[in-house]
Nucleic acid binder design. Structure first.
Lengths: 144, 144
DNA sequence: TTGAAAATATTGAATATTCAACAATTGAAG
DNA sequence: CTTCAATTGTTGAATATTCAATATTTTCAA
């Protein structure tokens, strides 16, 4: 297994990249109905628990590095989807909150995303989907 | 399953993105020993079958869109890792070939990549790895 | 055969991301 | 306390990516 000359399509890294690209493309397509990039949906979804999240926390959660997140948040603040509050307990930190407008948008996006998951369930199957999720979670765990 | 309010960490799209990010980060780290980005390794690996590949073919195979590939190939031509030949049968096309220097580099990169796959096998397990690969392949198939 | 449509690759401008440096605040050792 | 290192977030310049437009060649129908 994993011989030096095996085709690239047998490498786990490649299969993950390919699957991710495809699924992400599909999701992108759905969310474009609301003109929102996937990363902004992730941000809204994380913030929709209502509590304040620091930029660092958020960057980890939504898989973006800090400067990219800062600039994306700038745009979302302009669009009044989220807002910044300085953390009173640690003034280095900024706490991000979702706005009412953000909540409304998030609900619409959720249903578009659920559409996609259902579409995957149909074509890929219930069993395979949950098994794949399980394996991915365990891979992520084992990589820390 | 896939309720509107389920946390983002339960979405397949998110799990794929997270796993891909992590595995890719690890691979990137290895390949940086030779100062080569993951995409260039993919290109070299595809071309290392020795036959000529058109830009379109290559773009699909290495998961890049056309303009990005063109510019990356420009760099690799400057580094004399690959070279362009106009396709004699269809002069719209350009056929890409790997150079001798490219082959030498590709061998080094392959062994770095195999290192990583072995590392994954150790920490994640033989069984899980092959099962995950199988499921990913089937997901990709079902998405076409 | 000709002319319009499709396929292929590249370019340049607009956009986005990243890297390194910075500013502000906190933590902690002396 | 004071000072120095660590943490947190942002900024600006450098880099990379993407979108739309372009050029070239081929295909194919009239």
């Amino acid at each position: 297994m994993a011989k030096p000359n095996s085709p690239i399509t047998e490498h786990l890294a490649y299969l993950l990249a390919q699957a991710n690209r495809e699924i992400n493309r599909q999701l992108e397509l759905r969310l474009s109905k609301e003109g929102v990039p996937v990363e902004q949906w992730r941000i809204l979804k994380v913030l929709s628990d209502g509590s304040g999240h620091s930029m660092g926390e958020l960057a980890d959660a939504v898989l973006l590095n800090h400067p990219t997140l800062t600039k994306m948040i700038d745009r979302m603040v302009s669009d009044t989807l989220v807002y910044r509050v300085q953390d009173p307990n640690d003034r280095r930190k900024v706490l991000m909150f979702i706005s009412d407008r953000g909540k409304v948008l998030c609900r619409k996006l959720n249903s578009l995303a659920v559409d996609q998951e259902e579409h995957i369930l149909e074509s890929y199957g219930d069993k395979s989907t949950s098994e794949l999720k399980r394996l991915l979670e365990s891979l992520i765990d084992s990589s820390n």
